[in-house]
């Protein structure tokens, strides 16, 4: 316990501390109004609360300073950030005013509030500050604890009830009732066997020249299988079209000379099925006839896809 803080008045060192910390607190708090993204506002509010904790130490309240850091910056603001993650980090306010003149009225209201508070503060006649330590020697948490448990026991009980009610309330609010019965694995497997696709679905990038996740797989006829790209990428609109990639591939690298011994990746035509022109693929090069002695290049899937898109 430093003796110079025994009186309640602000020492010059405390003044310096205040004028360093207080502007940081105010600036980062004003980010709540001006920050476009909610995450920025949350981080700036954390900075404000840490500044307040520093000021609590200067105000002889070390227990509250610790509680401020642990409860507010550690728990409350992290809860905010988690909810932002659930709701969507990209959520940002629109600058559009929905109620006409609301922003102007808010500015007037804020100035009025400052005027009212300022008038009350500067007209108030405060006695000389007493300071905590004149009557309370010893450490601060002990005294706060003895006051809480000796002088405010009923409040403490009420707060405990409130915390339990809040925890239960959060569970009830976020509980989701299951509307349909749960599908068992047995039902899923039966459905899968009855469906047209029993084998695993193709992974993205199969035969597409690239195996990146945003490149759709190519089926045997050279068409892109859109379902092979993960849903999240498709929902964000980041799935690539196969044609653009095929163009790039052709421009960047000369297609390798086909090895006649290598197994052809092109689908062999079934002699029993007549060759039906596919309306989706207008410019697909003709599949080589197996009887032709010198087969032309087997159609590359990328070429076929390129043709289908043009």
């Amino acid at each position: 316990m430093t003796p110079d803080l025994a009186s309640g008045a602000m020492s010059s060192a405390e003044m310096i501390l205040f004028w360093v910390v207080a502007p940081i607190a105010v600036i980062s708090a004003s980010a709540l109004i001006f920050a476009r993204r909610a995450v920025t506002a949350a981080v700036c509010l954390v900075a404000t609360m840490v500044c307040l904790a520093v000021l609590y130490v200067a105000l002889d309240a070390p227990f509250l300073a610790m509680a401020q850091v642990v409860v507010y910056t550690g728990a409350v603001m992290m809860l905010f950030v988690f909810v932002l993650m659930l709701v969507g980090v990209d959520v940002s306010d629109s600058a559009r005013e929905t109620i006409r003149g609301q922003r102007m009225a808010t500015i007037v209201f804020g100035i009025g509030l400052v005027a009212v508070f300022g008038g009350a503060i500067f007209r108030a006649v405060l006695p000389a500050p007493v300071g905590i330590r004149q009557e309370q020697s010893g450490n601060n948490p002990e005294h706060v604890a003895s006051m809480i448990f000796a002088d405010y026991p009923f409040t403490l009980e009420l707060v405990g009830v409130l915390l339990i009610a809040a925890a239960l309330g959060a569970v009830v609010m976020t509980h989701r009732t299951r509307l349909t019965p749960r599908r068992t694995q047995r039902e899923r497997s039966k459905e899968r066997v009855r469906s047209s696709q029993v084998t695993p679905y193709p992974a993205p990038g199969v035969y597409a020249g690239r195996n990146a996740t945003d490149v759709p797989a190519v089926d045997a006829e050279g068409r892109a299988i859109e379902t092979s790209v993960p849903d999240a990428i498709r929902a964000r609109g980041q799935a690539r079209q196969l044609t653009g990639i095929a163009h790039l591939e052709i421009e960047s690298a000369e297609p390798p000379e086909p090895d006649p011994d290598a197994p052809s990746r092109a689908p062999e035509p079934d002699p029993d099925i007549p060759d039906i022109p596919d309306p989706d693929l207008p410019d697909v090069p003709d599949v080589p006839d197996p009887q032709v002695p010198d087969p032309p290049d087997p159609p590359d899937p990328e070429d076929a896809e390129e043709g289908s898109a043009t």
Partner: peptide, 18 residues
């Protein structure tokens, strides 16, 4: 003590405007 009260007022008004 007045600076602390002024800071408290400013933060309160910022919160209300927010």
């Amino acid at each position: 003590m007045t600076p602390y009260i002024v800071l408290s007022t400013v933060l309160f008004v910022i919160g209300a405007v927010t």
